[in-house]
Design a protein around this nucleic acid. Sequence first.
DNA 1: GTCTATACAAAGATAGAC
DNA 2: GTCTATCTTTGTATAGAC
Lengths: 195, 195
Amino acid sequence: MTAAPSSTASEILDVAEALIQTRGYSAFSYQDISDALGIRKASIHYHFRSKAELAAAVVDRYAARFSAALAGIAANPRKSSLAMLDQYMAPYFEFSKSPDKVCLCGALAGEMMALPGAVRTRVEAFFEEHQQWLARILQRGVERGEFVLSSRPARMARMIFGALQGALLVKRTTGDASQLADVAAALKAQLRPAR
Amino acid sequence: MTAAPSSTASEILDVAEALIQTRGYSAFSYQDISDALGIRKASIHYHFRSKAELAAAVVDRYAARFSAALAGIAANPRKSSLAMLDQYMAPYFEFSKSPDKVCLCGALAGEMMALPGAVRTRVEAFFEEHQQWLARILQRGVERGEFVLSSRPARMARMIFGALQGALLVKRTTGDASQLADVAAALKAQLRPAR
DNA sequence: GTCTATACAAAGATAGAC
DNA sequence: GTCTATCTTTGTATAGAC
């Protein structure tokens, strides 16, 4: 959201982020970034000492963007919990509109055991944060009488988060544009008060 | 299931499969296999001309194992549809018991745009097959009065498949052993007849 | 079918000039 | 801050002996 002051460092982060989202960590290289920005590989090393450091910075920025958005969504006490969930899902729908993008951390999850430790811990923290945020919103919905859950909030949160991440990955592979909308509909159907 | 006649080729497939499940496609090398089996890299090339060909063979064998299992599950007309779903989920639970394994195709999904075409099409076919099989079982459950679905079978199938794949990926990252059981419970809760 | 040897390209990274 | 040049390691792959 914050349009960064277009320094080289942030342009490198932009390209690296897109590359990881589409190709993963192991399959992207400094050369890819060099080609995209028209600078030399050595110049990238000036801004980010190593590939691991660059990837960690990409995840940090990505996670921070989400953290700010999540705080913003939950800030309005008069908003319905269902509306909050809809807002949470909006970025996933954005990704699903592109033919080749998934959640940055969802892409990284497939190659976890090949990731540098600094990247791995950040992906883990991202997953934890999102699941906890979702659990809080679900709990709030129950307390306000908006939701009736078939499982405890923490469980439902896990399912919703995993389903969204999985849906994006499957959608990109099968190219089926309605995948995410279908998943979102099925998830929300599970939150409705008993008939 | 078919305990192969332990030829070198099948041992290579075994190791490659495990490596892809844990590290992904881009991050595994012929050297890794060479180290694991105590043979030279050149010997692997004798059995599989290229890395792309090897990976395609790995996915083929993996998918064939599942195809046979799926056919077996659906073969018994007296089995409950819920029992069929439980059997479908069993391999996911097996993976979730290990600290570092996810579905082979789930791991590959994260780096789709970096995969050779032959591998990509096979992963896509795997996803399609599983979602179609799940949709048929759900449809059967509706017809037999076992399930009441909040969405059409194809949609529910997508959600279940995506949720299972996503749950495995998230579980491996967060290390939370109950993730898959929680997701399975939440998914099944969604299939119950109206209260 | 497995080996040694080697080719060739790409990767991540550093040194030092400008 | 970006460049050229270079180093080192690794990766995929092939040729040909055993």
